[in-house]
Design a binder for these strands. Structure first.
Lengths: 136, 136
DNA sequence: TATTAATCCTATAGATTTAATAGGAAATAC
DNA sequence: GTATTTCCTATTAAATCTATAGGATTAATA
């Protein structure tokens, strides 16, 4: 299941990408428009800023803005920040690899084989999709 | 993330598919061989039996067996029983559809569009993979 | 300079889900 | 009738997710 954090984050990014204004977009505006609890959204946008996807400006007329063109923001990056590993098991994760406790040899593991296929397919979607695709 | 339930379930099914013996396979044997807590595995195999994937025999020399040939057991079916919906959000689920609380119109929702793609790719993997593939 | 509006930060509560355990009832082989 | 195994229900323990609270900091502007 996609977490609400990720869902809200993607919706917020889309909202910002669609924004016509030159000014940064304040959290309150997004929260209201997209039906997202404001405080929760604050924390989400904060992590997106810390990861480099978003920039921010404090104070009056402040808010969040994209650091790159929407077409340059890949879903792989966004998903890894919001949702964590793209793989369904750590033992097939490219960026968050971890060995399984059980499983003496993962080359013989049937789950491993299957999940590599799922990972590759999902990865292909996220690599070929940018924020520009979402917001169009 | 794949739940342990699903992971254990897949490993157990693979173990049973690989079994040479004519007798049903007892839970204890699988649990020991695959490093799975036995009581937990019991409950997992029980749900697989109730869903029709496995058959069982009680008492001495009892255990679990496959109801169909491994090549006839699709991952779509197994995954839906063990892990639930294949889609990452209920609003793009074929078998467990649910509308989102937020989201006035899901055709305009950027998350919706993206998750349909992920679903279709994952579905393709699961539709084209059977237990025979896992256990070979 | 005071006011207002915004991000930033930390902590924590509440809710849900997952993982695992416990204890025995029912069935079957021998 | 004893040993073995599935079957069933309940419960605990742990982890994670969702959301809220309360204020500190920063910046624009009147």
């Amino acid at each position: 299941m996609l977490s609400k954090k990720t869902k809200y984050g993607l919706k917020a990014l889309t909202y910002i990408a669609r924004s016509k204004s030159d000014l940064p977009v304040p959290v309150g505006e997004i929260a209201e428009s997209e039906n997202i609890p404001q405080k929760f959204l604050e924390s989400i946008l904060l992590t997106l800023r810390k990861s480099g996807v978003l920039g921010s400006k404090k104070g009056k007329h402040g808010g969040y803005y994209l650091r790159k063109e929407p077409s340059e923001i890949k879903m792989t990056d966004v998903m890894r920040v919001l949702e964590g590993p793209i793989a369904m098991v750590p033992c097939v994760s490219l960026n968050f690899y971890e060995k399984c406790d059980d499983c003496p040899d993962e080359n013989l593991c049937s789950v491993h084989k299957l999940m590599i296929q799922v990972r590759d397919n999902t990865l292909q979607v996220f690599r070929n999709t940018t924020l520009a695709d979402l917001s169009s």
